[in-house]
Nucleic acid binder design. Structure first.
Lengths: 290, 290
DNA sequence: AATCATTCGTGCAATAATGCACGAGTGATT
DNA sequence: AATCACTCGTGCATTATTGCACGAATGATT
């Protein structure tokens, strides 16, 4: 019988296109990957990858089993979640993910409290770009800004997000208003067109806190969720008295259904939910300085 | 990430009920199984088995993932078959299964020929009781006596099986005819009731060759597929001139769909099919001695 | 009650897998 | 053409896993 774990190596190489990157993803040395793939091919008398100078390329035999390997991975993840779902200890690791600004400007101190309450729970925080896959256990609990989370994630909606248009007192008047936009906004966004006759994009950013900094530096005005500027509450950054309809995005504290009984996850999730509810007014834009 | 191979150990213990038997099934030492289960439990903080004096008993946590583990096993088997399906070498192992009497009294010499033709192909023959699971790769090619094989097995129907009623010349006349029956026949079988007024079960057997031996020894008469007594062609065992309708069972040479392109499997299967077709008249009862 | 056949856990030695460090090959850049 | 950055394979030392042999515990049989 084939070692079931071999398919994990196979998938990593197939998805990363080379042994080195696969090894990094698997957290092992590249030679281990190289040797296990070679052994797998040997054992089955099938060539799975063509060794090209730039890396490994799937053969037709590999293509043939690739889809199945993905299904296998999904099943393994499911089992992993279910097992974790049975863990009733108030100790061990929890992987958390959230937008970094929420951590840095809203929750840091709360985390200090939690650490004191539950010293045996090891929190791993991931605030990197991109959403973590909770089904793959890349994270156990997520704080997400989203209109509606997928079915397999459960949790509480803390608040509906209110946006505002913010500006620094440093910003000088001019006939064309400089806008701070998002990377994916190719032209002047709608909110600017509606409220300003003349507007142009001054800079594009890919991060909310970067946007805030740009506003504060007087580079331009921006539409931001109120919670960030209002929490920081820097006197030079003011919200303009322009009404923006309530967003349909909410702040959610989420985890996978399969983890609903995992005690430490429950504990941490409840804690986060409670603390965020205290900050509800910030998310709803009731703390703005005009 | 959990070692996917751990679930293989989990399943073996769950299905065998104790570490020792699981180890035998996995072809490893019992201490390996014991330690891997312990490590799996440790890693996930979940108790999977209760250690009772007679072995290991699944906890509710184990029950929870058992079904998923089975699905995982099925996926692994599927991948294993697909990989094997890509093997185009005329060397390596082939696992064969068939009723032992077919091997011993019909095909032995043909196997000698095959071995000569393909010395690099290693045949593993399994003639034990019970059907092997071709989906689980317990066997690659099967010769089966069956009315209709399942969809996922493909192959050729060699012949339709003809049965006859056989008797030894040694058997003495009496007013009640002694019948040799199968284990699962609780009362005198239909064929006997139809053709004989007075019949009783003299002995029950669970194997065709055993049935033949019983007939030869004069213990009674029996309904057997013609191929066995006719191939052996012992003068003391005669077929009675009683017509029995053609059975709807056939002789099939089968393998899993996924192995249809595996060269050595194809080669061996074709060989077996050809040789069995030569013996078609035996299966159809045209070689009987009355 | 004593023996026997099971089960399983554990220390120790043999075996297998892994990481590390190096060198070779390829392609892009200077 | 030379350098750099990136691939990968391989020998060797280290580490992890496994098998073996033993003893303890339980339950059945004598």
């Amino acid at each position: 019988m084939i070692d079931w774990d071999d398919i994990r190596f196979f998938l990593a190489v197939a998805q990363n296109g080379n042994v080195t990157a696969a090894a990094r993803a698997l957290n092992v040395n590249h030679s281990t990957v190289s040797r296990r793939i070679a052994a797998l091919e040997e054992k089955h008398g099938v060539r799975l990858f063509e060794r090209i100078p730039s890396g490994y390329e799937m053969t037709s035999a590999a293509e043939d089993i690739y889809q199945l390997a993905l299904e296998l991975e999904a099943k393994n993840q499911q089992i992993s979640r279910r097992l974790f779902g049975q863990d009733s200890r108030l100790q061990g690791e929890i992987n958390l993910t959230m937008p970094h600004d929420i951590f840095e400007y809203s929750l840091v101190n709360d985390f200090a409290d939690f650490k004191e309450q539950q010293p045996k729970i090891q929190l791993n925080l991931c605030v990197g770009q991109g959403l973590k896959n909770l089904a793959a256990r890349e994270a156990d609990i997520a704080i997400r800004l989203t209109p509606a989370p997928p079915d397999y994630l459960i949790g509480k909606k803390i608040a509906q997000i209110q946006h505002g248009i913010y500006q620094s007192i440093k910003l000088e008047k001019s006939n064309s208003i400089p806008i701070i936009a998002w990377q994916n906004e190719t032209q002047v966004p709608d909110w600017a067109k509606i409220h300003f006759e003349n507007a142009h994009i001054a800079i594009r950013v890919d991060d909310l806190y970067a946007m805030y900094c740009a506003v504060k530096a007087g580079i331009g005005i921006a539409r931001m969720p109120c919670y960030l500027p209002d929490t920081i509450a820097n006197e030079s950054v003011k919200r303009l008295p322009i009404n923006i309809p309530l967003s349909n995005w909410g702040v959610w504290v989420l985890s996978h259904v399969d983890l609903r009984h995992t005690r430490r996850v429950r504990c941490c999730k409840d804690f986060l939910t409670e603390r965020l509810i205290h900050k509800k007014t910030y998310f709803e834009g009731h703390r703005s300085h005009y």
